[in-house]
Structure formats: C-alpha cells, structure tokens
Design a binder for these strands. Sequence first.
DNA 1: TGTTACTTTGTAATCATTACAAAAATGAAA
DNA 2: TTTCATTTTTGTAATGATTACAAAGTAACA
Lengths: 136, 136
Amino acid sequence: MIEIKNMAEYLNANNIRPSVHRIKIFEYLYTKRNHPTVENIHKGLINVIPALSKTTVYNTLKQFVEKGIVQIINIEDNETRYDADTSTHGHFKCVKCGMLHDFSFDNTNLGIKDIENFDIHQTHLYIKGICKKCKN
Amino acid sequence: MIEIKNMAEYLNANNIRPSVHRIKIFEYLYTKRNHPTVENIHKGLINVIPALSKTTVYNTLKQFVEKGIVQIINIEDNETRYDADTSTHGHFKCVKCGMLHDFSFDNTNLGIKDIENFDIHQTHLYIKGICKKCKN
DNA sequence: TGTTACTTTGTAATCATTACAAAAATGAAA
DNA sequence: TTTCATTTTTGTAATGATTACAAAGTAACA
C-alpha cells in the first residue's frame, strides 16, 4: 500500500480538512492495519481522545469512504470492517480464530465471463478457511 | 448451477425435513435466482403462505446456510442477500440500478500470494461497477 | 471581536436480526 | 382414530449496529 508520511497532508490532498479527530482515526487505520470495526476504533482511541463519540467515528469513516481513501470490508453480515489500503488486494478470514489476513492476487487474469461490456469500478475478493496458525 | 427436479427430495438429501414452508422458501430462491433479501422472500411468499412470519424466513435460511445449500452474499453492509447457487461464481453489483448479476470466473488461476499453507474453504468474488443497461 | 461555516457530541429513532415462549402442526405408537 | 412426543412456526420483545438530528463546541477570517 501507499506510504504516507504526513497524515494531515494526505487528508488535505484528498479534500478532507484534517481535524485532530480525523487525523487520529485515519492514523489508527493506517498504522494498525488490522481491519477494525467501528467498535475497535472507538475503543482504541478513547484513551487518546476521551470525549470521542461513536457518531464521529461513523461520520468520519463515511467521509473517508466517499473520498476514496478507505474501503469497507463486508465478509460477515454482522460486522463492517474498514481498511485504509484501497489498492486491489484480497482478504482471508479464518473461520476458527476470526483473524483477517491480507493477500495479493492477480486481478488481470480472472477469466471473467458473462459480464462483457460492463464497467468495472472495484474488484473484491475474499476467502474463508483456516489460517496456518489454526491448522496446528 | 445444479438442476433440481424435486425440491422435497433435494432438501431430504441434505438432511432438511421438507416442510411446506421450507420447500416454498427454497423454491423461491432456486427459481427466481435474483439474490433476494429476507424482506424480498417474505413479501414474495406472503400471498402463497399468508401466515408466514419473518422469523421463519430467517430460521429457514440460517438452516439452509448451515446445511450448505444456500450461500450468503454480503456486498452492501446493510443488505444480506441469499443465493441457492453454491457453486463458485462471482457477483456483479451495478452501483446505478442496484441489480446483481452472476458471472463465472476461473478460481484456479488467481495468482494468490501471502497465504501459502492456508486451507481454503470458500472463495468469494464480487465486482462493483455499471452494468451494460445503465451505460446507455 | 463578531460572524459564519464546519465539526463534534449525545440522545433518540430506525432497522435488521435474534431470543424465546406459546401455539400449531406433524408423525409415530397404541 | 386418539394420544403423546417432537418438530415447526408464530409473534412479540430484546438486542445491536447504524443513522438522524439538534445543540454545543471549534476554527477561520474579515
């Protein structure tokens, strides 16, 4: 994924005014890279910003998604996760430990049929199974 | 997808006792093939089974998923859809009209890296974009 | 400062889903 | 058929995630 040196500048470059909350929320996503839920982000930042409300986390993430610097990961129907890496990559969900792992794949050679002449905006691939750790 | 002649037999073969409700719900999924939500199924069957409760639709679908004859499609975070076709295939979601289209792809040649020695159970691919109709 | 726009908060509303207990239907044995 | 146990279905209440919205707070800038 892209290297970002200055969070505030990066937000600015994407037409997002870099308030302290926005910087912290983006920083959380970018540095942890653990595909957190809203709950995770809120709990993780409540020490840093004691008054942080969940509504702000929701609003901020919605804005990030609209501006294209964050993508939503929908694997389980009851947990929406967020990812600051918007480059094309897949997600592996371990059905045993629940952990999410990034992986890379070749999206130029998928052998797609039946949707000729459709405009493709985003390609999402996820795999469910058992991770290496849980196999042992 | 598989051809099913007798719904009741198919349910039986998958260890699901074929009650009238279960047959109708599966039949709906199998014949419509339109990736319905719980709401869609309930509305679509309320004429056939006037007393049908949503709880029954939820319970029945959960059972179908557990027995492996139906898969969940999670594309948007606020709408869970269901598909009686459990063979490996992708879903294209048109961001304009909202329609879902099936497509086939080659899941043997994805060039996956970074998750060597992981056990793969299911591969899910979905694409967002604009469908042929909406382009015109 | 004063004014205006933007951001954040907190509560209430909404909506999908689940829990659960009661009612209904089914099926097998007598 | 009648009885009894089991399974299925229903309907309401509870839960939990997300959104709406108005009030409070903050920043920008003349």
